[in-house]
Design a protein around this nucleic acid. Structure first.
Lengths: 353, 353
DNA sequence: CGCCCTGATGTATGCGCTTACATAATCACC
DNA sequence: GGTGATTATGTAAGCGCATACATCAGGGCG
């Protein structure tokens, strides 16, 4: 036997459509049709093909298919991080909806770094992503140029952009924090602390901070500089920030950028002997599943991130199908709980009402 | 001008390597080399190529590349859900490490459904995944057949399999809950409640339950059937389960499958007037970042899931490079906090020590 | 000055699949 | 039973890229 006989001794080369075709006694065209347009092939033949495919262990290879069909059935999403329920739920919603259409989702994380996001976008386009979902709009212009040059459908999420420059699905972040702030104002608070994530490269957070400050300013209230803290968020960061804030001239309410921070604040209040909500009201955001069950339970607000994911998917699917993209403004779900109440003493509260 | 002139009026077809080649006055081979083996091409020429690529907006198309190169640089992971910090962190770790090697991660969720997992695995192989990361081993034999038939490297995570049937990276789940149980036994508890996720199709949870029951049994202790509850976990489930358990003949300690459940249990205890840890000790698992900051802070244990992700990546990279795969048993990080203490009254505690 | 070697580039084939088109087979109907 | 319509299948040409091999240009050296 010649040594170059094509006996698959060493590495049994992965099978290809032609192997299935041979096995089933048909042409590769029929194999392809059996999988992609089953009703264009005689049931008897189709079954023979399926059986042959099973026998030789064949799975169609997407690369070949993508090339021939000019269609990858790939969609990409770029998110700041997976380490947050917000984005994890969002991705889950996105993936579930896209999966229903046989589309595979490519996920990549940019850590809120615009240039990393641009690089990731390049990778995704190179991989053949047919559409992209982006969190916010804080990206280099070049990214959008890339998309429009190739007319790649995209959607901005976690942010509702009224201007309509891009289709978007998300919350009005400013409005959301206006709501939170007004809740506290209505309870009678006049002296505030604010602990937020870093607004750098994060327009959503910037909007939220803007919403708080503007609303307070409308009521003639300013936040003392040392009562306003931003940074890399975590419960510990909330704790540390709150300790600083409560140290001197403490406010009667602290608005937190999310529940993780707020839970740290609650711990700090406890450690410093502040009673919540008697001495201090605290609000979170995102409404973590545990926030309802901790003590004191946390006043918070959220939007349905899974829904946001599926709406984003819908928006991309619409565009891929040549339909008009719908932007959607999601509603805020506000949950008032034990961590907020009227301030115990009204201090210098001169509000004439 | 003839109407069929190749003027890109309507749809400016995405550019291909040949367009770049023409623009730069070289062949497609040189274009390819400029991108993949830059030092095999004269700097002057390479720059000309890069400039041309920029000009015509060309990105290499992965499908063509994959086909020609017989290499997709794609790796897949199948996880039960993204809606859990455990898996989100794991995926993040996995992706970070693979990304360093220029490998794109394909993520899909199976919801602990073995047949869904099999389907997802098929999709991933079809997409050209060169290796797979799987949570646990509770999959149809067919899935592993698929992998071994094509000799696709894989790794089992979130579970350490001593048997060495598959490379694995994870915790010894039984041992972990033995540790938790022994902690409570050492404190003097003799009457236990157990609230766990559903062990169906989830060997990790089954092992954990086994670890608890076996350890107790070694001490001659059995858990009352109505003090042992499993189900779809959430803080609310923990709350409901605990209300049931605390209703009659309450135990002095409740072991929970994770922190979310435990936080629900804490809420139930509060609602029923049980003081934690005086009247009731509670343990969680996974050590959620908030668990240290809530009141009472929660005794919990965890493993480093991001590390697990990067070790899993390493294991796959080793196999892809033809090196030996290393299984790794991760260490348990146990955190004793306020939610556990000696039981207030020793009840019927007859332990002679 | 010619030879050979090295390094840069080009030519052309094939990766695995889909699909337009060609062909063959079947059927209805007069 | 012949004709045209209809349906089932086959043939073959790419999809965009990488790369083995061929070619060509220099350069070193005798």
């Amino acid at each position: 036997m010649a040594p170059h006989d094509d006996l698959p001794i060493v590495s049994p080369r992965k099978s290809r459509a032609v192997d299935v075709a041979r096995e089933a006694g048909v042409s590769t065209a029929t194999v392809s049709r059996s999988f992609n347009e089953p009703d264009k092939v005689l049931p008897k033949v189709r079954e023979r093909v399926m059986e042959a495919a099973r026998k030789v262990g064949w799975l169609p290879h997407a690369a070949g298919s993508a090339l021939a069909r000019q269609r990858t059935l790939l969609v990409g999403t770029i998110i700041p991080t997976l380490r947050s329920g917000i984005f994890a739920n969002f991705v889950a919603g996105l993936q579930e909806r896209l999966g229903e259409e046989g589309i595979t989702l490519l996920v990549s994380v940019s850590g809120n770094d615009p240039s990393k996001a641009l690089a990731e976008a390049r990778v995704m386009l190179s991989r053949g992503a047919e559409a992209l979902s982006l969190v916010g709009q804080a990206y280099p212009e070049e990214l959008f140029d890339l998309l429009s040059a190739r007319s790649v459908p995209h959607v901005i999420t976690h942010e509702f952009c009224g201007d309509g420059k891009h289709p978007s699905v998300g919350l009005d972040n400013r409005e959301a924090f206006v709501t939170v702030t007004q809740h506290l104002l209505a309870l009678g608070h006049r002296k505030f602390g604010l602990i937020m994530p870093d607004p750098k490269n994060n327009n959503r957070v910037a909007e939220r901070i803007g919403g708080v400050l503007e609303t307070l300013s409308d009521h003639g209230i300013a936040i003392n500089a040392e009562h306003q803290i931003t940074g890399e968020w975590s419960p510990q960061m909330g704790y540390d920030a709150a300790v600083g804030i409560l140290n001197r001239m403490p406010p009667t309410a602290i608005i937190c950028g999310n529940d993780q921070i707020a839970i740290g604040v609650l711990a700090a209040a406890r450690a410093r002997g502040f009673h919540v909500p008697g001495d201090l009201s605290v609000t979170g955001f995102d409404d973590d599943p545990v926030s309802e069950h901790i003590f004191p339970s946390l006043t918070s607000a959220r939007t349905d991130n899974t829904l946001m994911g599926s709406l984003a998917a819908e928006c991309l699917l619409d565009q891929l199908a040549g339909r008009q993209a719908k932007s959607q403004k999601l509603t805020l779900l506000f949950a008032e709980r034990q961590s907020t109440s009227r301030p115990a003493k009204t201090d210098l509260n001169l509000d004439p009402q």
